[in-house]
Amino acid sequence: MEISALWNSSKFKLSTEIILTLGTIGFGIISSWIFGREYSDRVIQDLLALPVPRSTIVLSNFVVIFSGAFYFH
């Protein structure tokens, strides 16, 4: 099978759409769980009391989520 035939196959397109959709939903669930745990364990209050911008805290959380996703993938 040629490469161009593989890229144009409908099964490949469907599987790619399914993987991207489930990956986006999974990322949203894991992100909300991590931020929710920080809020329910009252860690967020301690983090926001530090002299660090909030964007840095959020960015560091996303870096941890992305690196965990690459590690477990």
Rank of each mutant, 00 (worst) to 15 (best):
M1P: 04
E2S: 12
I3H: 00
S4H: 13
S4K: 14
S4T: 14
S4A: 15
A5M: 09
W7C: 10
S9C: 11
S9F: 06
K11A: 13
K11Y: 11
K11R: 10
F12K: 09
K13F: 07
K13R: 05
K13I: 15
K13N: 00
K13M: 08
L14A: 10
L14G: 02
S15C: 11
T16C: 12
T16N: 07
E17V: 14
I18R: 04
I18K: 05
I19K: 10
I19E: 04
T21Q: 04
T21S: 10
T21Y: 10
T21F: 13
L22W: 09
L22I: 15
G23N: 12
G23C: 12
G23D: 05
G23P: 07
T24H: 03
I25D: 01
I25N: 04
I25C: 09
I25W: 05
G26H: 06
F27E: 03
F27C: 12
F27G: 08
F27A: 15
G28H: 02
I29E: 00
I29V: 13
I30N: 06
I30D: 01
I30V: 15
S32R: 09
S32D: 03
S32E: 03
W33N: 01
F35C: 06
F35I: 12
F35D: 01
F35H: 07
F35G: 05
F35E: 03
G36M: 14
R37G: 01
E38Q: 04
E38F: 15
Y39E: 06
Y39A: 14
S40Q: 02
S40C: 02
S40T: 13
D41P: 00
D41G: 09
D41S: 15
R42G: 03
V43T: 12
V43P: 00
I44E: 03
I44Y: 07
I44G: 03
Q45A: 08
Q45C: 02
D46N: 13
L47M: 08
L47K: 01
L48W: 06
A49W: 02
A49T: 06
L50Y: 08
L50K: 12
L50R: 12
L50M: 15
L50H: 04
P51C: 06
P51Q: 02
P51V: 13
V52W: 03
P53N: 00
S55H: 07
T56F: 10
I57N: 02
I57H: 03
V58K: 09
L59M: 13
L59S: 10
S60R: 07
S60M: 14
S60G: 05
S60E: 00
V63L: 13
V63I: 15
I65P: 07
S67M: 11
G68N: 05
G68T: 12
A69V: 14
A69N: 02
A69G: 10
F70C: 09
F70K: 09
F72C: 06
F72Y: 06
F72P: 00
H73K: 08
